[in-house]
Design a protein around this nucleic acid. Structure first.
Lengths: 184, 184
DNA sequence: GGCGGCATGTAAGTTGTTACATGATTAA
DNA sequence: TTAATCATGTAACAACTTACATGCCGCC
């Protein structure tokens, strides 16, 4: 009964990002990376080196297909298949979800007691300025979305995540302000 | 001038977590993992498979040392060296910090339009119940810290990060409540 | 005597990043 | 004509997880 010692291939989450985006309509690998880097930046990240190979793996598994030609610049348009939609739904229905963060600025803030006085302020200032910029981006995205008339409420899902991002950045920004200038 | 094509070894952040914790006093690899899994869970994660090899790498680079013997159960007590403190300070002073999150529940929430009605509610409920539990843990940790008299304000750094965790979880929890039960 | 928590460590696999190579199209 | 952006892709590396193996110690 020789079973592989290291099992659980379980598939990376990258595939579900791709499947999810393609479920809204066909798009290119580049588009997937762009959307992720803009709309999802707050809670997700993905690199080209992940996306392109994963698209080809998904194609081998018949979860996506691509149509070539017609598009400019050698752009490929990827589409989700029925099997792909089924896989997406299975993931959505499964109760598993891992939610993790690696906030290096917070780690630095915690350890700043080990450095010269003023270090904490510098770390918080740097973190805060990034947050301000990112918050501004999210607010702009929300305004743009709201400007587009949406009778079928199809923007609600995007607004939902945009709202979470804004709430998070605001909470973090307030935190940087609360802990700055204390001479810690 | 043959230089390696793939340069920038730059070192993982794991080493700074270790160096930072050891700067408070000697501890074992197991302790490092425990503390990270408890106090830092909100903003950092680390596995044994990262910590033990990194400790040995750090020792080779003379940033940490270990004293064996005396301790029960083969426990090793690791200490930071002067060079280790210097490396820690250099990291704290450097303006670079990457802050990223992978919130699978949020990704699922966004894509829930592709599944049966009620899917969003289930995802938010699951996310919310995890958040409630984690928030409770953080509140307990804070209460414990405050119960210990602290004339030199050495707990302030721990309270600072505990507060950020609580603020974050509360904001996220409110978000799950706001978007639940809308029939989306 | 057995279980659970403490404690260390490694092997193998998976996942993710970075740097590169290539080329088309658009705008200054 | 040159730079920026769009667009695809791979090789090499770095980072991280998981599963396992091993043993100690205290407690019931």
């Amino acid at each position: 009964m020789s079973e592989s010692r290291h099992s659980a291939p379980r598939g990376s989450r990258t595939r579900f990002l791709i499947l999810g985006l393609l479920s809204e309509g066909p798009m290119s690998g580049y588009d997937i990376a762009s959307v992720t880097g803009l709309r999802f930046r707050f809670f997700w990240s993905e690199s080209f080196g992940q996306i392109y190979p994963e698209l080809h793996r998904l194609e081998k598994e018949a979860l996506v297909t691509h149509s070539e030609g017609g598009e400019p610049r050698g752009k490929r348009s990827w589409s989700i298949t029925g099997e792909g939609r089924a896989a997406l739904k299975a993931w959505l229905a499964s109760g598993e979800a891992s939610n993790g963060a690696r906030l290096e600025s917070v780690l630095k803030a915690y350890f700043s007691f080990a450095a010269e006085p003023g270090t904490l302020d510098a770390i918080l200032k740097d973190f805060g300025s990034k947050l301000s910029r990112d918050l501004g981006d999210l607010e702009k995205m929300e305004a743009e979305l709201r400007n587009i008339h949406d009778p079928h409420a199809s923007h609600d899902y995007a607004l939902m995540t945009l709202e979470l991002g804004q709430a998070t950045y605001r909470a973090w920004l307030e935190w940087t302000e609360r802990w700055s200038g204390r001479g810690m």
